[in-house]
């Protein structure tokens, strides 16, 4: 049986590959090569599921080609892990988050791989639409950071457009708690909002620089930072309200 540590190591390795492709270290069939060269195919497939929509970031942001073998590899990851949050201890909000992450992945798979996309989950549940408890809500949005990608749009994005203030509060809270991986993911949402031209109560650029220095060396965090870089450099400057 493959352990969680094996999955984590495979996810880090795959994140490094995606990061390399995003930075221009192009090659052929990124995802398929990752699975072919892995000693543990299950762990390699798990890595694709963990990264989710970020698997497509070299193709979305850097224009890297997406091969048919890559599409087949992503589809295989869904075969291997059809319901990732299936444990008896999984909470409803975790299932909601996982469902939306899968929605994002399948949307992009449909676009790049020519496969049919499944319908969206039945709207954001109450735990996503209600921002009253902004502390918990912002953590869930951090878990959904892979959706903060150009080219994806749906009910969660519409929700984020109307929740710049709770997101900014979440960023501030995460930085104060020194939970920099969460802060990095929330800054990614702010950068996405800035990219969309939404007025923000907090300038994401200096916070991005701050969490870049303190966010740790995890490859997944580095990938979040790289996507945020792309979003910020392409954003509309007047979008930020100071």
């Amino acid at each position: 049986m493959t352990t969680r540590a094996d999955f984590a190591a495979a996810a880090d390795e795959f994140a490094n590959r995606v990061l390399g492709a995003l930075r221009g270290a192009g090659g052929t069939a990124l995802v398929a090569r990752h699975i072919d060269s892995a000693p543990d195919a299950l762990a390699a497939l798990a890595a694709v599921r963990v990264l989710g929509a970020d698997t497509f970031s070299p193709h979305l942001l850097a224009g890297a080609p997406f091969h048919a073998d890559d599409a087949a590899a992503v589809a295989r990851s869904f075969d291997a892990f059809p319901t990732p949050v299936a444990g008896p201890s999984a909470r409803p909000e975790e299932r909601t988050v996982a469902a939306w992450r899968d929605w994002a992945t399948t949307q992009l798979l449909g676009r790049f791989g020519g496969m049919d996309s499944p319908p969206a989950p039945p709207g954001p549940a109450d735990d996503l639409t209600d921002t009253t408890d902004w502390q918990s809500w912002s953590v869930r949005m951090a878990q959904l950071a892979t959706l903060a990608t150009p080219g994806l749009d749906g009910p969660v994005h519409e929700l984020a457009r109307g929740a710049a203030f709770p997101l900014a509060r979440g960023v501030t809270r995460s930085v104060l708690r020194r939970d920099f991986p969460t802060a990095v993911r929330l800054v990614r949402w702010l950068a996405w909002l800035a990219h969309e031209g939404v007025a923000l109560p907090l300038d994401p650029a200096p916070v991005h620089e701050h969490v870049r220095l303190l966010g740790g060396a995890s490859p997944r965090t580095a990938l979040d930072l790289a996507v945020t870089d792309h979003l910020l450099t392409a954003r509309t400057p007047e979008a930020v309200r100071t």
């Binding site: 049986m1 299936a86 444990g87 975790e94 988050v97 996982a98 878990q143 708690r177 991986p181």
Partner: peptide
């Protein structure tokens, strides 16, 4: 199911 639950918890990482 145990392996699926393991990556589920990696997909939905809680805050530190």
């Amino acid at each position: 199911p145990a392996e699926a639950a393991a990556i589920g918890s990696m997909m939905v990482e809680p805050e530190a």
